[in-house]
């Protein structure tokens, strides 16, 4: 990040102007926008792998030496992902708007639609990658907003039971009350042992990391690190993945949605290999999941607004971050209103 960069990648808004080539949107439309900027016309986008877009990152040449290939752009994020201006502003430019901005159906409030921009589809993809089958028990590390939606999504996709792991009591409480998860407070009990006991000694069929780490320099302000902050794992970074490798049943799946940006140290690859684990991960495919989530929300099957504990005006963003960072007043997620 650089001074003057505009952050924020989870947003809803009203269209005030459209570019020449925009065909599906017009002035006045209320839209929810995927945090991933994707062209909609490359092979990856056509295959619904929106965050792997070939064309939307104007700084792809910076990424190639690090990642081998370039990925999609992201709003208000590291310059590796294009350095696009983000959404904590009065106005934001939406490239490839026909693909990235999706109309909000009548009857949904801003707060209901807002998490469908990023946190909810991230959770849904985390669960989707687990290929959940009947009877499966899913363990979710991290109960920030992404974790909350991961739990909900795992149930939506047919999990028998979801076990949520965190240390912040109000987040665990939200996971129990809103989604019916069983919870483990890892400060009170060893998560690994507890998981084994709670799964008949088998271990969870799938483990989802909704913690991850946000790269230094991206700030603590992205939606993802709300999750990171939840369990204070910024010092013990690879801790979640190490624990998941050991806790998961043999032949199980690890799904990593918490953001990793660089290198990990001391991964127990021997255990992962010998246990035949499947590792899946990635930035979320927003445009793939957003229409389905809006549909469920408008039918009243989900109300994503429950994650918001605070609402503040945009010009108090600094105070909002302070409140969130220090988890004052049981803060889980803040909505900023311009």
């Amino acid at each position: 990040m650089m001074p003057g960069d505009i952050i924020g990648h989870e947003f809803v808004g009203e269209i005030v102007e459209t570019g020449r080539e925009v065909k599906t949107l017009k002035k006045g439309d209320r839209v929810v926008v995927s945090s991933m900027i994707s062209c909609g016309q490359c092979r990856y986008c056509k295959h619904q792998e929106w965050s792997l877009c070939d064309n939307s990152n104007p700084k792809g040449a910076l990424q190639e030496p690090l990642f081998g290939f370039s990925t999609s752009g992201i709003y208000g994020y590291s310059h590796l992902f294009g350095g696009y201006a983000g959404a904590q502003a009065e106005y934001v430019r939406i490239p490839y708007a026909d693909y990235g901005a999706i109309k909000i159906p009548e009857g949904l409030t801003d707060e209901q639609a807002l998490p469908i921009s990023d946190a909810f589809p991230t959770g849904l993809m985390g669960a989707d990658l687990c290929n959940i089958k009947r009877g499966d028990i899913v363990a979710v590390w991290g109960c920030g907003p992404v974790g909350q939606f991961t739990i909900r999504s795992a149930y939506m996709l047919g999990a028998e039971r979801v076990i949520a792991i965190d240390r912040v009591p109000e987040r665990l409480k939200m996971a129990r009350e809103q989604s019916g998860a069983d919870t483990i407070n890892y400060e009170e009990v060893g998560a690994g042992e507890a998981l084994k006991e709670m799964t008949g000694g088998r271990g969870p069929d799938a483990c989802i990391d909704a913690v991850g780490l946000e790269a230094h320099g991206m700030g603590f302000m992205g939606a993802y690190d709300e999750v990171k902050q939840a369990v204070k794992l910024s010092i013990d970074r690879p801790y979640v993945i190490r624990q998941m490798i050991l806790a998961c049943r043999k032949g199980g799946t690890l799904s990593i949605m918490g953001v990793y940006a660089g290198f990990l140290d001391k991964m127990p690859m021997g255990a992962a290999f010998s246990k035949g684990l499947t590792l899946k991960m990635g930035q979320m495919f927003g445009q793939k999941y957003i229409p389905m989530l809006l549909d469920r929300a408008v039918k009243g099957e989900i109300d994503p607004s429950y994650v918001f504990t605070h609402q503040m005006p945009l010009d108090q963003a600094k105070q909002a971050y302070e409140t969130f960072k220090h988890k004052k007043d049981n803060c889980i997620k803040v909505v900023l209103k311009p």
Partner: peptide
């Protein structure tokens, strides 16, 4: 593929 070249030039 898209008819345009991705850019952030001139953004706010």
């Amino acid at each position: 593929e898209t008819g345009e070249i991705a850019t952030t030039e001139g953004q706010s």
